[in-house]
Amino acid sequence: MVQTWDERVAAVWADDSLTDDERIVLIDAIAAERAGDDPRALFERAGARDAAGLEREAESLYRAAIAAGLSGPELPQAVIQLASTLRNLGRVEEALDLLRPEYERGAAVELRDEVAAFYALTLVSAGQPDAAASVALAALAPHLTRYRRSVEAYARELTAPHDLPTANTSGSPEPRR
């Protein structure tokens, strides 16, 4: 059975027996089937290097993929991964500059919880733990079966301490914890 390009890429990523170097070689071989400036090929090559801890090599490939017109579900992945790479390289402000607009778009972002997770991590790296906790709690709140409004209020409180909630905001008896 002949596999598509995407299926072969996915198979490489799914193979946990591969070393980082083997994964890079295989991804590069599959990527070479496309033009050198193909955004998907650049993105996959970046990801292989990023996963291997080769952030400096990954950065330029992520940037090239985005500049070449990467689209679809890979675009938010590339933004998240590039921002994470920049954070790991100590370029926290650049990472925040990439993640902030994605986070602020909220529901319009396909991977909004993933964006929030990496935005929160980057805020911690930037020395803003209260803002990070607020982002994390705001992302978690919609998934809660109870205490959603309380958690949302606490998330807001962390970034606006002058606007403290004075009562349970849920409309039902929930102890504030």
Score class of each variant (00 low, 15 high):
E110V: 09
A117I: 10
G36P: 00
A120P: 03
D16N: 13
R100D: 13
T122C: 02
T166C: 04
D37R: 04
L61R: 11
V109H: 11
E102D: 06
R23K: 15
D113R: 09
D6E: 15
V124I: 13
M1W: 01
T166D: 14
V135Y: 07
A95M: 01
E102M: 08
A11E: 13
D113I: 00
R45D: 03
E59G: 03
A78N: 07
L144N: 07
Q81K: 06
V25G: 06
E157M: 06
V12E: 01
R100W: 01
G171L: 11
L158A: 08
E57N: 11
E174C: 01
L26M: 14
L75A: 01
S71N: 12
D50A: 12
P173T: 08
E33N: 05
T4Y: 12
S60T: 14
I30K: 03
L26K: 15
Y103N: 11
L42G: 02
I27E: 11
L164K: 14
D16V: 12
R146T: 12
T169I: 11
S170M: 05
T122I: 03
R45I: 02
V115T: 09
L18N: 08
A108N: 10
E59T: 07
L42P: 00
L86R: 07
S150M: 06
R177S: 12
P175V: 12
V12S: 03
A120I: 10
R100F: 00
W13N: 05
D163K: 14
P175C: 08
R176N: 07
V151A: 10
A139S: 15
I24K: 01
S17N: 06
E157T: 02
A65L: 09
L89Y: 01
G47A: 12
S60H: 07
A46M: 10
L89H: 04
P76H: 05
